[in-house]
């Protein structure tokens, strides 16, 4: 186990507890959800001046689609010296009625995926430096 500090790769996008959740915002009049969180303005044209409040998104959703990338993407993606293919999953959140992207959990194999399969939010390592391990939200297939 590394002694490095575990820090989010991006601030304010997800909680860091054992049951992590994506942080979003919600219009107080329309109930529209926005991810990533934006408290400055509502993008719902029916209520452009409505106030926004922070909320969390459902931890579970269903796979809408996915792809495995077999080529190293350009910076600012940070990849290890030996590039490892990685999978990006699009997940439908039923209550929020939206699709949210995220990496497939590194503990899962893409062969476990199917459209409609249930997935759950976890945290996983994105990259590390000398001091920190930077984590990001990931989708893990519910067995």
């Amino acid at each position: 186990m590394s002694n490095k500090a575990r820090v989010p790769a991006v601030d304010g996008w997800f909680t860091m507890d054992d049951e992590p959740k994506l942080l979003a915002s919600r219009g107080v009049e329309t109930g529209s959800y926005f991810f990533p969180k934006n408290l400055a303005f509502s993008r719902n044209p029916a209520a452009p001046t409505e106030a926004l409040e922070e909320c969390t998104l459902s931890r579970r959703g269903r796979v809408w689609s996915w792809t495995t990338n077999h080529y190293k993407p350009p910076a600012p993606y940070i990849s290890t010296d030996e590039f490892v293919p990685y999978t990006v999953v699009a997940v439908e959140l039923v209550d929020e009625q939206m699709v949210v992207l995220g990496p497939l959990a590194t503990s899962c194999d893409p062969s476990e995926l199917s459209i409609g399969a249930e997935v759950e939010l976890v945290l996983g390592r994105l990259y590390e430096d000398e001091d920190n391990e930077y984590v990001v939200w990931q989708w893990k297939v519910v067995q």
Binding site: A9, V10, T67, N69, Y71, P73, P74, A75, P76, Y77, I78, S79, Y86, V88, L101, G102, P103, L126, V136
Partner: peptide
């Protein structure tokens, strides 16, 4: 790109 490696072909 940073968080997902979501290139256009993704």
């Amino acid at each position: 790109f940073r968080l997902l490696g979501a290139s256009n072909p993704t």
